[in-house]
Nucleic acid binder design. Structure first.
Lengths: 355, 355
DNA sequence: CTGAAAGCGCTTACAG
DNA sequence: CTGAAAGCGCTTACAG
């Protein structure tokens, strides 16, 4: 501890201590090779000695990027998004970027505040899963080619986007339920007009029904909050109605897990008395009993692609808009109800164990 | 669009357009009242007209704080932490701070990288739940009075800290299990030597047993990963052993929820054939069936206190170290097993519904 | 291989 | 109430 630390140790202090210029010290820090080995060593020694901490903010101001990226999510407590966040943060860290996280809790005004704050920061770009609302354009209008923004999971017209083929996913789910014997199948979760993903999945649902010559019954489509509670309450409403369904496709796994509990609350056995399909394949889906049959929408793949897309967009702002649509996959587990006993012996044996 | 935007619109551009000095423009932006109303309006008009975006980074460099806070968490996919994060982010946003999020996934080297990066950023301070390891001091040694760091949920000796009274929490849980008839009670989850919280809860567990004159059996203490899978596997190991327990206290709710599924996997009924108590009271605990009896460790309260503590620490770095220990509370639901039927009529009726 | 000077976009005393 | 100048901690050409 050669000297009393008054405020911050700067490059100038290092330069003085190592008896070089500020520029040379800077070159050493950034690992520019053109510095003589002896000089480099002397500088590194001073850095250690004085406890120098690099100031990225100052560097960012001079260079024209911050190596910080904003990540705005609509509900961090939803496991799906938590898993997406991990993937994004990982990918960005690898590229040397820091992540600024914001959680909107589906609150539009919080979203707008976060967008502004992060842009002011300034972040080099923003990754966002927008809140539930129809008129996206409002909050995002000023980002065009001006500021790099990539949407994920929920589409934003006019911006780069990574998401899944929602229609196809719903279609796969309904076909599966039909195949194992279900004829009266409900759709639970989300709100039309608030969520394009909901509209698309509903489209897939209806399309599948019509292909399978099952009559569409609007009473079987029930909106709900996109959390456990929503599934819990929604499925009970469905079952208590007259002419109830025998199975349900839920908007996502979290809703589906809630629905499982709702069925239990009514004294029924999910996967035996009633069929449930989720959407996303979060890790809990494999862990619960009965295992949740679901549509894979890999959070890690989604997160990685989104991060990748943003990094590209930051590098070349002028590039045309890119949209990546990931393909869904049916993951069969044990939650689809009795009919399925007569279907597949391997699955049957799993089913057996439950009793 | 008066002029072609070449790079960034700065205060100087605003000043030129509004025909004032840079200083005056700055005063307007920061809402300093000493500016004449007509001048203010002229400046605001130019800001809108030119699409000016405030540059916080530049301001931070000049003032001596960034209004950014680092938040490092060991596992964002754990609902408990997700709920804590929401609370922290909320509180910080209210105070005008931006949150930089880092997830370590319990990886020590990631933790060290994040600490450094955030400090370099520079964040004004860091909130951290450290990864699982004994020698905390290593990674945190250089933060003393130098840089504001507040720990939460997992203690870090020598730093500000907010957490719960783990010993007392475990004690409450065991007393409850004993009261409703359990005599052979296991402890599941965590790893001694890696986690002080585990040591403390274990201490409470043993203390309760000894007070209740129940013999301590080390075979009933089984370590596990702190996730759903850990609970799932661990409880099955416990039940399959000879002389199995009739109930288990889990390190946290996530482990407990996994244990519930593990019990189902063995064809038993959680809350009927086997008792389970969790720890934390995450929102899923109220939602599952049977409802999870648990020890409340309110994530929102924890997060808010931690944020508060950091804000104070940032304001007065010299202040003595503060430690806040929140008091746990027993939340009785339906997961504690058959003995409990003979106990409480209100709960019995809930239990009834399950059949 | 190394150094002096200018500048990134703000704010902060200090004059007037 | 408003303006000119210096400075926060870096990096970037440009000389030598």
């Amino acid at each position: 501890m050669g000297k009393l630390q008054k405020s911050r140790v700067t490059l100038l202090d290092i330069a003085a201590d190592a008896d070089v210029s500020r520029s040379t010290a800077s070159l050493v820090i950034r690992n520019v090779p053109s510095v003589a080995e002896t000089t480099r060593k002397r500088v590194l020694k001073s850095i250690k000695k004085l406890g120098y901490v690099y100031h990225r903010g100052a560097a960012s101001l001079r260079r024209q990027y911050s190596h910080a990226v904003g990540l705005i999510v609509s509900d961090i407590t939803n496991s799906f998004f938590a898993e997406v966040i991990v993937a994004i943060e990982d990918r960005l860290a690898t590229a040397g970027f820091v992540t600024l996280l914001g959680n909107t809790s589906e609150d539009r005004s919080k979203e707008e505040r976060l967008l502004r704050t992060m842009q002011e920061f300034p972040a080099d770009g923003i990754l966002i899963c927008p809140t539930l609302h129809g008129e996206f354009s409002k909050g995002f209008a000023h980002f065009g080619d001006v500021f790099p923004v990539v949407g994920f999971a929920r589409r934003i017209p006019g911006l780069d986007y990574v998401g899944i083929d929602n229609e196809q996913g719903a279609l796969l789910a309904i076909e599966h339920l039909y195949r194992i014997g279900h004829r009266r199948i409900a759709f639970l979760g989300g709100n039309p007009n608030h969520l394009l993903a909901m509209d698309d999945r509903l489209k897939g649902y209806q399309q599948a029904l019509s292909q399978l010559k099952v009559k569409f019954d609007p009473l079987l489509v029930v909106p709900s909050d996109l959390n456990r509670r929503g599934g819990f309450d929604g499925v009970q409403k469905l079952i208590k109605a007259k002419n109830p369904p025998t199975a349900v496709l839920c908007f996502n796994d979290v809703v589906a897990l809630g629905a499982m509990e709702g069925i239990r609350r009514l004294g029924r056995k999910p996967g035996v008395d009633f069929g449930i399909v989720g959407f996303n394949n979060i890790s809990d889906a494999a862990q619960c009993v009965p295992g949740l049959t679901t549509i894979e929408n890999s959070p890690s793949q989604l997160g990685e692609s989104a991060a990748e897309l943003l990094l590209k967009r930051i590098e070349q702002r002028g590039a045309p808009i890119r949209t990546i649509i990931l393909q869904p996959k049916l993951i069969v587990r044990e939650s689809c109800g009795a009919p399925f006993r007569n279907q597949n012996s391997q699955l049957m044996s799993k089913e057996e164990k439950l009793r």
